[in-house]
Simulated assay, not measured.
Amino acid sequence: MTPVELSRTVLRAVRRAVDEGELRVTVPERAVVTVPGPGGCGDYATNIALQLARPAGQPPRRVAEILRPHLVEVAGVADVVVTGPGFINISLRDAADGAAALVEEILRAGLRYGHTDALAGQVIELRIPYEVRAEVVADAVVRIVAAQGGRAEVDHGEPVNLRPVPAPEDPAPLGPDAARWALLHPAAHDRPRITADHLVQRASNPLFRVRYAYARTRAVTRNAAALGFTADPAAISVALGLDAAAPGTAPFSGGVPPSLTTPTPGETPPLTTPLLTTLADHPPTLTRAADHRAPDRLARHLVTVADATLAFLPTVLPFGDEKPSAAHRARLALAEAAGAVLAAGLSLLGIDAPDHL
């Protein structure tokens, strides 16, 4: 079950509770499903009970307990636990099938992965000052809102409702891609840095890591084709079984990119779950970025995806005389899914994703 499918499952649970008279609320248009936060558990969590508590006139935990039996009975759900003030934590029965479905969904959707109709019919007015950063941020917000089914209209009238901290100098000398990243990556209340650091091809540059990770996913696809195998998302369940006992891979944190290192001979690298988690978090990240008019949330998410991707890529291709197996085909599918998410995110920010870097 993918996050999008689980979101629909949560909404169906709300609808059943309303139909049976357990809740008196209007069924919302969307339910945000994301990875559990601190104190949470399971595979996914949702704050739908906190969202419905006030209109229902009941405490959030009570709303969560009403929804719990409607979720437990769903095929594919192993357990539902209520934590904190009313967060609903959901454990799925078969993580392997869920991983395969997630990767298949990403590869099928491509650049449209994470696009929803959550803001369908909504027109959002953005009133900005005449300033370069405000223009770039507004342009990214227009793209992200459109990805959620809404429409954002930009105007320079008063009162201004989108005023990021201005750029200290003209970012144009950085070039279009680095300039946009310099203006979009910091939060709106942070002062952007307009320096040549955005151009260096080193691990210290987040933009380089994101674009390099995407380019490496394209490279492993080309290399796999030369070795005679292609991606197979359905093989992920096999690969997860092979790798269940293997330790996870640490995130890329600087120095030599892991994609330039070599796995230890004789070891079976894991199909790492951190990358699956970051890919699953892409749709709710887009929703939050649209809701808060905050493209910086998407930019920071792409850095997280890139770091997990760079840590994972050394496991994709066979090592030495090793023959391509189902695990390699599964890892290639996951690498291609990561590349699709990176390309989609960069596209929404108006930044190019190069196949070679």
Results as ranks from 00 to 15, higher is better:
V4E: 09
E5S: 11
A13L: 05
V27H: 06
A31W: 00
V32D: 04
V32K: 03
V33K: 00
V33C: 02
G37A: 12
P38I: 03
G39R: 02
G39M: 03
A45M: 10
T46L: 10
I48E: 00
A53M: 10
R61Y: 04
V63L: 04
I66M: 03
L67C: 10
H70T: 13
V81A: 08
V82I: 15
T83C: 10
P85V: 05
G86H: 00
D97N: 14
D97Q: 15
A99I: 07
A100W: 01
L102K: 02
L102W: 03
L102C: 11
V103P: 03
R108W: 07
A109W: 06
L111Y: 07
R112K: 14
R112V: 05
Y113E: 04
T116I: 02
A118I: 00
A120P: 02
A120V: 02
A120F: 00
G121Q: 12
I124R: 03
I128M: 12
P129Q: 13
P129K: 13
Y130R: 15
E131M: 04
V132K: 10
R133C: 09
V141E: 02
V142Y: 01
I144R: 02
A146Q: 02
G150T: 08
A152W: 05
V160I: 15
V160T: 15
R163Q: 05
P164S: 06
A172N: 13
P173L: 07
P173D: 12
L174E: 10
D177S: 10
D177T: 01
D177H: 06
P186E: 05
P186V: 03
A187G: 14
A187E: 12
D190T: 05
R193I: 04
T195Y: 08
A196W: 12
H198L: 08
Q201N: 13
S204W: 07
F208H: 11
V210Y: 00
A213W: 02
A213I: 06
R216W: 04
T217Y: 11
N223R: 15
A225W: 14
A226H: 13
D232C: 10
V238D: 11
V238S: 14
A239K: 07
A245P: 01
T249P: 06
S253A: 15
S253F: 12
G255M: 09
P258R: 10
P258T: 10
T262P: 05
P263K: 09
G266H: 13
E267M: 08
E267H: 06
T268P: 08
P269N: 08
L271K: 09
L271D: 06
T278D: 09
L279V: 10
D281A: 15
P283R: 00
P284V: 01
R288C: 00
R293N: 09
P295E: 04
A299S: 14
H301C: 07
D307C: 13
L310Y: 03
P314H: 06
P314C: 10
P314G: 07
P314R: 05
V316I: 12
F319T: 14
E322L: 08
P324W: 03
S325D: 12
A327E: 03
A333Y: 04
A335V: 06
A338H: 06
G339T: 08
A340M: 04
V341W: 07
V341I: 09
A343F: 04
A344Y: 04
